[in-house]
Each structure stands twice: as C-alpha cells, then as structure tokens.
Amino acid sequence: MTVAIDRATGKRRGEPGPRRGRFQRLKQSYQKYWYAYAMIAPVVVVIGGLVLYPLARGLYLTFTNANSLNSARTIGVNEIEATYEWVGLDNYADILWGPTSYDRFWSHFIWTIVWTVLCVTLHYVIGLGLALLLNQKLRGRTLYRLILVLPWAVPTFVTVFGWRFMLADSGVINNFLDSIGLPSPMWLEDTFWQRFAAVMVNTWCGVPFMMVSLLGGLQSIDSTLYEAAEMDGANAWQRFRYVTLPGLRTVSSTVVLLGVIWTFNQFAVIFLLFGNTAPDAQILVTWAYQLGFGQQPRDYAQSAAYGILLLSILIVFTSVYRRWLDRNEQSAI
C-alpha cells in the first residue's frame, strides 16, 4: 500500500500541473530538492562525519602498522607524534595467508559462519513455532506472549550476567544436570561447551524478536485464504506450506536479513559471557575488538583490517541476498 502511495506522490510531485517553461521547471525542482536536501543534511553530516570518515580513516589504518605504541598520543603534557608507516596490503596478507593465519583468522571465520547460521536458524524456527502456537485461540494467550517477550525486554548486558551465574561450574544448570545423572560440562572453560553456551544464550535472547515479528505477519494473512484452502481439501501441513509460508515471505525475508546482520555483529553476548578468557569462542567481531582494545600493545591496524573484512563479507552477503530475493520477485528492501 505504501509503495502505491509513494509511487502516486512521486508522480504527483513530479508533474507540476500544466507544462511550463524549462526554466520554471528547473527552478521548481531546485526548490523541491533544496528542501529535501536540507532535511536530510543533518543525517548526512552525522553519518558522514562519524561513520564514513572513520571508515575511510579505518581503511587507511589497515594499510599501516599502527598500534598503540606508535600512534599519536599524549602522556602527561608530552604530545608524541605518530610514527606508524605505510605497509601496503601486508596486514591483509598476514591475516589471510600469514603464519598461524588459521588460528588467528580462519578458525574464527568458520566459527562466525557456523554461529550465524545456527543462531539465525534457531531464532527463526523456534520463533515461527511459538508464533504459530500463539496465533491460535488459546486460553492465556496474552500472558504467554508477555512472558515470552521478556528476554527481549531486559537489556542484554543484564541477562548475560544472569546466564553467567547459571552456567558457572557449580551453578544451577550443572547442579540440575548432576541431580538427574547427566555429566556437567565446563560451560565457561571447555571450547565446545563455550560455543554451545554462546549459541544457547544468543538464541534465548533473539527468539522473542522473531516471534513477535512473525506473529504480526501471521495475523496479517487473510483468513479467507485458509478457508479457500480448506474447501479445496488442503490438510494442515498443506495449508502451512502453501498459505502460511508464502504469506510470511515478506516479513521473513526482512527479519532474516536483519537477524543475519545482527548475529554476525553480535558483540555483547560473547564479550560479556567470556570476557577475554575464551579465545576459541570469539567470533570475528569480538576477536577484532580484542586485538584493538583487549591486549597490550593494542594492534589498531590489524583490528581495523578485520573490521574491513567483516564489512566486506556482510556487504557481499546482503547484495547476494537482495539479488536472490529480486529473482524471486520479492524485493524486501
């Protein structure tokens, strides 16, 4: 609907009534655009000044060997000039092919991909399941809904600390596992269980958003479609497959894209759950942060190079995703 309105106004504003002279039209379009540009100017300034300029600067840093020992800094009253040098593509080469590059980059890269795929799949599947359950006539539906949204309502940094208590060596989860005779893993020490715990906590945090979005999508599906499908003899699975899923496609494509971006860049969960203690459970974002700020000397150049790599991965993914959606005649954004 909005698309239609957009198009309508675009047209309405585009044609200035009866055709006037070229100069007149130019002047009018200048006026119109002048207002538009004036209105987006603040955002352009903010984004340009604090995102694009730092991005360019960060890109430049990746071609140097900047770290906290050779950057410009102030110690007491002495100002020390920056002494880092241009090293070309060395940083990227070192990250991607250098010695121990597997440990430093590729293992984190693989884990980041696994992490993103696992988390988004779990978010989506569980979210969809709960949304379907909540979309039926049930007693206490509103109450369930309110409770299930809770993990989203509480700030992440609070809930992650809650999880840390629970996952501690003799915390409540291990006590419970002990009491029913299961082995109690070292959640916060053992690499596999660290990863498991990270995925679990992030899933817990991310499901409510998917659930609420998909519930909105479900409620917007025209109920006559279900009636029609039922008249044609479709069973429950067929109604789900051929009415519900297609009806959800627009919402799904958006939330999945957002989910991938957010999960890929998910910083708080892993950072707060493990701090600096779990090198193997760090995804690329937290790992880059650790290089840049969590160690001495701080390696600014490598950290920024990781950042650029991350951004490129995301941009490639988003472009491919959009093209794929377009091919399915379904433009999401």
Binding site: L55, L61, N265, A288, Y289, G292
Partner: peptide, 15 residues
C-alpha cells in the same frame, strides 16, 4: 546498520 564495531572503533577513538 551493518558496520561492525571493530571497523569504526579505532578511527572513532582517534577522532
């Protein structure tokens, strides 16, 4: 919205 923290952190800090 998809800029990772890591890419902006250092330059932002400098600025």
């Amino acid at each position: 919205q998809m800029f990772p923290v890591a890419v902006l952190m250092v330059p932002m800090y400098e600025i």
